[in-house]
Design a protein around this nucleic acid. Structure first.
Length: 255
DNA sequence: CCGGATGTTCACCT
DNA sequence: GAGGTGAACATCCG
């Protein structure tokens, strides 16, 4: 389920672990750990804070930074509880065999990453420089630079994590639908006025869907099925592949 | 049985 | 170097 909104919810949950000392990192799925540094290097480390860049959640400790990647179906359980994800595609179900990593703390509590599809991973000291500015805080001028240098389709550029971090397939479709912009347009073809409009709607969609409960709560999401109509003007929606992802959009008002 | 799925990465083209 | 496509990863769901 995770795009930026869900990962932010997980980060907030992980805030509860700040100040706790790690006694053990249990790896139920060895393939889930990536990178040079090993999980046991975290034993005895204390969590000092949490951060998020795009879809990457970070736990800073005095022995390094633990990076959490959730793939498409990863979730975080802190102290046995999941965050606000009643609307997950799995209907909130959680099976023990989906548990990939557990971080045990000295006070007896546990933080678990559960992920049925195993497309996520965990890493100590991940390379944060591979990510562009976070979509939540990006300034309009920076967004203009991100778009202005690219001949890629607008949607593909917005989802390219090394240029702009955090937007996934659902958020991006919703943002472009609300901003009335054609996802297939060349990114650099946007006028300054259109970039402003895009930026404004990006912020609005992130805020609105955050309140509603996640990336899947958009107006367009409800219409994500074959033969669906645009919730704004009732015209037939198109279903195309843009940037390698299924894209729903309204050719009537998105231009 | 089949197709599709909120993500990332890689090989192979142009 | 940039960008596109398709595949792979592994599993669940309708």
């Amino acid at each position: 389920m995770p795009e930026l909104l869900e990962v932010e919810a997980y980060r907030r949950q992980a805030e509860a672990t700040v100040g706790r000392t790690i006694v053990r990192v249990e790896l139920f799925d060895p393939a889930y750990w990536r990178g040079e540094r090993r999980p046991d290097e975290l034993e005895g480390a204390t969590v000092e804070g949490t951060r998020r860049i795009g879809k990457l959640a970070l736990l800073d400790t005095d022995a390094g930074t633990l990076g959490l990647r959730f793939g498409m179906t990863g979730r975080l359980l802190v102290d046995g509880a999941a965050s606000i994800d009643q609307l997950v595609y799995t209907s909130g179900r959680d099976l023990p065999e989906w548990h990939r990593v557990a971080v045990r703390f000295r006070d007896g509590t546990t933080m678990t990453l559960t992920d049925p599809r195993r497309l996520g991973w965990v890493e100590l000291d991940p390379d944060e420089t591979r990510l562009g500015p976070d979509a939540v805080s990006v300034r309009p001028a920076v967004l203009r630079e991100v778009l202005g240098s690219s001949s890629a389709p607008l949607k593909a550029r917005l989802m390219d994590q090394k240029h702009l971090a955090g937007l996934g397939n659902l958020l991006t479709d919703e943002i472009l639908w609300r901003a009335a912009l054609d996802p297939t347009r060349e990114a650099r073809s946007l006028t300054p006025v259109e970039v402003r409009r895009l930026h404004r709607n990006m912020s609005r969609v992130i805020a609105d869907l955050g309140h509603r409960g996640g990336s899947h709560t958009g107006d367009l999401q409800a219409a994500r099925s074959p033969g669906a109509q645009c919730p704004r003007d009732g015209r037939p929606l198109r279903r195309d592949s843009v940037g390698g992802r299924t894209t729903y959009w309204c050719p009537h008002h998105q231009r």
